[in-house]
Deep mutational scan, measured.
Amino acid sequence: MQRVNMIMAESPGLITICLLGYLLSAECTVFLDHENANKILNRPKRYNSGKLEEFVQGNLERECMEEKCSFEEAREVFENTERTTEFWKQYVDGDQCESNPCLNGGSCKDDINSYECWCPFGFEGKNCELDVTCNIKNGRCEQFCKNSADNKVVCSCTEGYRLAENQKSCEPAVPFPCGRVSVSQTSKLTRAETVFPDVDYVNSTEAETILDNITQSTQSFNDFTRVVGGEDAKPGQFPWQVVLNGKVDAFCGGSIVNEKWIVTAAHCVETGVKITVVAGEHNIEETEHTEQKRNVIRIIPHHNYNAAINKYNHDIALLELDEPLVLNSYVTPICIADKEYTNIFLKFGSGYVSGWGRVFHKGRSALVLQYLRVPLVDRATCLRSTKFTIYNNMFCAGFHEGGRDSCQGDSGGPHVTEVEGTSFLTGIISWGEECAMKGKYGIYTKVSRYVNWIKEKTKLT
């Protein structure tokens, strides 16, 4: 034993070699072989497995989906700052455009905790909710729209109204504003409101030439003092309507412009014939205590009207009353817009006519005020429907199939267009061939041609 100890002390290297040989010859039971080890760690190889990531292109799944990435790591994937920024906006807080917040056709661009709407022409605001041009839906104005110097929408209202708090709607500024039905039992019968379409306001006024200088022999019209197929109006439903009495009662109609003036057809009036105007009328054979009678003290036909040349060209006249009318729910003026808007309103496509005229061709006159909704007829169809001249200051309205029309005794009465609950004068009943005849239409004086003249002559002093 002493000898062994001496050998170990003198030859430590020998001992180490012996131990190493023993270990190498022993069977290893701690580690699995290569094949079995792979069965336990069965993990798919990654895209760049075996390579240094710093030297390969980034992978979106590896960089940002398996674990949260930084902007720089995302930049490695896209290799483009702009594309990385677009991805980053949604990656950080989701897609803010998912709810489609942009209105009126706006395009949404996502941002971090926010979004941006790219608005089409005519709109602005956070969600493109603000109209900035009158060309689109009248700028959301209830009545009139004008573009300011910086191309912003400025709404306005006709006389007797003021802008509401929203700067879009119009509200009454006087007790009985024009064009409004205020009798409670008839307010439910107000005709369907007309909503502004998209309009090209630059070209809204037709490029028409008034044929002022045409000389033409007097034409022989049949029954051209021209509501057939209409309905009984309720008291106060058309408070701007008046009836004219002269040699015979209810020979023509008219509309209240203001307390002192009536507008009617020029062919209705004769110099030297006494005319009485009755406002607030409903049943011409009954006294309903809503009527107001006034005498006409002055007749002003349009300066281009000449019955000797043509009885229905420039067929418009103004009547001055001896005493002002007292405005109330049964006696209310009709609204008159400017030339541009009167023309736009007419193009809405349908209007209402009213009167006490004959209820059928050569038949009896109506006792109760009649009204009828009539569609506008395109000019080409209008011209083809008659052998008589249709001037540019006239328009056609009615039904091709016949059966409904204005008729004798309705002449001078109103053709009105309702705009968001307020009625505007767009025409004056003038003439036609018979009444409600198939293929024939009622012919009306186009008020847009005469609004400046009306307003100039009827100013209240």
Rank of each mutant, 00 (worst) to 15 (best):
H282T: 12
I309F: 10
S11A: 13
R373N: 11
T290W: 11
S148G: 10
Y312K: 06
A397S: 04
K293L: 11
F360P: 15
V359I: 15
W431G: 10
V263L: 10
I443M: 09
E456R: 08
A164K: 11
I284N: 08
G58W: 00
R191C: 06
T85K: 06
I256M: 03
T426D: 00
N313M: 10
G432Y: 09
A307K: 10
D33T: 11
F196N: 15
G253D: 04
N127C: 04
K146I: 12
L19H: 02
E98M: 09
I112C: 05
L130M: 13
Y341E: 06
N36G: 14
D110I: 07
F399R: 05
Y161A: 02
F360W: 15
I112Y: 09
S187K: 09
N42V: 12
N104D: 03
T422W: 02
M437R: 08
E27K: 10
I309L: 10
E27L: 03
S329R: 10
T426L: 02
A380M: 09
S187M: 12
C396T: 01
K137A: 08
L319D: 00
K459V: 11
S430I: 12
G105H: 12
G253H: 08
G413E: 02
T276I: 10
C134G: 03
V92R: 10
I316F: 01
T445N: 04
R162D: 09
E420D: 15
C382H: 03
Q237T: 08
I334P: 01
R358Q: 13
V242H: 00
E285G: 06
K45D: 00
N135K: 12
K137Q: 13
I316S: 00
C97L: 02
I336W: 00
I112G: 13
S354I: 14
G421L: 04
G409Y: 11
T458K: 02
G179V: 01
K459F: 07
S169H: 06
T186V: 14
K438P: 13
V183G: 11
N258E: 02
T133S: 14
N138D: 06
S107A: 12
R364Y: 08
L41D: 02
C69G: 00
A266R: 03
T381E: 09
L321I: 07
G272P: 12
F224S: 15
Y391C: 06
S70H: 04
R3V: 14
Y305A: 02
V92F: 09
N304T: 06
W240G: 01
E129V: 04
Q57G: 01
M8T: 12
K68H: 09
D315Y: 00
G442H: 15
L369K: 15
T276G: 06
V451I: 09
V199Y: 14
S350N: 15
Q57D: 01
G125T: 03
G272T: 10
S187A: 14
E456I: 08
S11K: 15
K152I: 08
F399A: 08
I390C: 04
N295I: 06
T445F: 03
I284G: 09
Y371N: 08
N138F: 05
R449M: 15
M437F: 13
P44E: 13
E281S: 11
P324Q: 05
Q96G: 13
H34Q: 09
E281H: 12
K274A: 09
Y391D: 15
T209N: 13
C157F: 01
T194Q: 13
V296D: 00
H400Q: 14
N295G: 07
D249W: 05
G409N: 13
P301I: 11
D212V: 11
C178N: 00
E129G: 07
T133F: 07
A397D: 02
N203F: 06
N113C: 04
E79T: 08
N151P: 09
L52F: 10
Y444S: 01
E259I: 05
S169T: 11
S448E: 07
N5H: 14
S99T: 12
S204M: 15
G351W: 02
C268W: 01
V153G: 08
